[in-house]
């Protein structure tokens, strides 16, 4: 699971959960793989991100970067910046670990890179 996906997921389908975002991450096994930089995509995806959550998630799984909590304004023309974002979004992958609901601590396992958000019958709201 990539940090991009983490940025888009919530646990709000759990009974009683209001926001369910952001999910906490426990990364047991992180893989870095190379992925071609696609400037168009990074430019288009940045406005779709919850930026703070993205930067914090990277820190949470031990990825150091000098991206700050605030998105810079003129990122569209800043290739270095876009490449850093690209790296964290697309090249860092959690192979095994957990996503954890911030409100209920319900654990969603990640195995073979694939998160499992299935709920049990009695958890559905």
């Amino acid at each position: 699971m990539k940090l991009l996906t983490h940025n888009l997921l919530s646990s709000k389908s759990l009974k009683g959960v209001k926001v369910g975002y952001p999910l906490r991450i426990v990364a047991k096994d992180v893989k870095i793989s190379e992925c071609e930089f696609n400037k168009e995509f990074v430019k288009k995806i940045i406005p779709k991100l919850d930026w703070k959550v993205f930067v914090n998630a990277a820190v949470e799984i031990g990825q150091t970067s000098d991206l700050s909590d605030e998105l810079i304004e003129d990122y569209e023309d800043d290739d270095d910046y876009l490449k850093k974002v690209h790296h964290l979004l697309m090249e860092v992958e959690i192979i095994n670990g957990e996503l954890i609901c911030p409100e209920t601590d319900r654990v969603f396992p990640i195995s073979a890179g694939i998160p499992n958000l299935l709920l049990n019958e009695n958890e559905v709201s």
């Binding site: 699971m1 990539k2 991009l4 996906t5 940025n7 888009l8 997921l9 919530s10 646990s11 709000k12 389908s13 975002y21 992925c35 071609e36 696609n38 288009k44 779709k48 919850d50 697309m90 890179g113 694939i114 998160p115 499992n116 958000l117 299935l118 709920l119 559905v124």
Partner: peptide
């Protein structure tokens, strides 16, 4: 085209699990 692959997720599409303001193209 693995550079274009983000992820697959095991989930029930009948339930809301995306962040409320996510927009797909």
């Amino acid at each position: 085209c693995v550079d274009k692959y983000i992820d697959v997720i095991v989930a029930d599409s009948a339930l809301p699990f995306w962040r409320s303001d996510v927009e797909f193209d």
